[in-house]
């Protein structure tokens, strides 16, 4: 018994050291980002760098709002990401319900095709999409962006939602039919509430996909008024004079909704990754 305890405490020591290193490595870039956004100009270029600031300064945030169109970029990002999420979740929930309740010849082939679509890299799709959108007049267009992100969300969402819908027993629905509900009513009141964890996971996933994407926005948006946050931030970085407190202030603000969403839906996301990403 005592040897087991000794072994345990030795393992504990390694564990504590490992966790400290992990938190430092993963956490420091976040700390440095937030710190830089608050550093006054006098501390910014000191060497060795200062690891705390004695005079926090909101100048970076102030310049971000006063000298750039940050709010209009944020609005673009919000509209596109929300639209893409709504379209993608609605479309994939319908399809997941169809696939699990009404199997038909070819539905297995459809599932396999969806898996292939899931593995398509954005760089492969964006090249022809640019040509097609140019001809269809969908460049610099909210709808074009929403459709592009929604269809990127669908394969993953559909894959992830299927097990959730399959897990809902058909008897539940049949009970609703006996009680006089039709299929639409039973789907809405019986099936959808059961699938909520999956629906939350795919909503967050699709929203973040659109909120964080750089490539599609870079290629499919050329007007300044329509830029989303990631490409706007990259353009600010590429400006001749790099204002690091301003850049890091923008980075903090872009990250904020992501980290909040992450905190709230962590368990759904982990469940989703476990279920959808591997098997």
């Amino acid at each position: 018994m005592s040897t087991a305890l000794q072994r345990l405490s030795r393992v504990r020591w390694y564990l504590v050291a490992g966790i400290v290193v992990l938190v430092a490595i993963n956490g420091f870039p976040f700390y440095w980002m937030a710190l830089t956004s608050l550093k006054p100009g006098t501390e910014l270029f000191s060497y060795p760098p200062t690891f705390i600031t004695t005079a926090p300064d909101l100048g970076g945030f102030q310049r971000l709002f006063e000298t750039t169109n940050f709010l209009s970029y944020a609005k673009n990002s919000l509209i596109i990401a929300t639209g893409a999420t709504a379209v993608s979740v609605a479309v994939s929930a319908l399809a997941a319900y169809g696939l699990t309740r009404f199997p038909f010849p070819g539905s297995r082939a459809f599932s396999t095709a969806i898996l292939y679509a899931y593995t398509f890299a954005p760089i492969v799709i964006v090249v022809p999409l640019y040509g097609m959108f140019r001809e269809a007049g969908l460049i610099n267009n909210y709808l074009g962006m929403i459709l592009a992100y929604a269809s990127f969300g669908v394969p993953f969402s559909l894959w992830l939602l299927q097990p959730f819908f399959r897990a809902i027993p058909a008897e539940l629905e049949e009970a609703a039919f006996v009680d006089g509900a039709n299929r639409v009513k039973s789907a809405w009141y019986v099936v959808v509430p059961q699938a909520v964890p999956g629906l939350i996971a795919v909503s967050v996933f699709t929203f973040l996909l659109a909120w964080e994407d750089y490539l599609f926005a870079r290629v499919l948006i050329t007007q300044d008024e329509l830029k989303t946050l990631p490409i706007a931030l990259h353009d600010l970085y590429n400006a001749s004079l790099q204002d690091w407190p301003l850049l890091m202030a923008a980075a903090v603000l872009i990250n904020l909704p992501v980290l909040i969403a992450f905190l709230f839906v962590q368990k759904y996301l982990v469940a989703g990754w476990g279920a959808g990403a591997i098997k």
Partner: peptide, 23 residues
Amino acid sequence: WGALLLSPAFFLVLGVIAAPIGY
């Protein structure tokens, strides 16, 4: 019903992923 429910997903993926590959 299965085909009807699948069709929005089908056309979205066809239009924005499969057709571009052909192009």
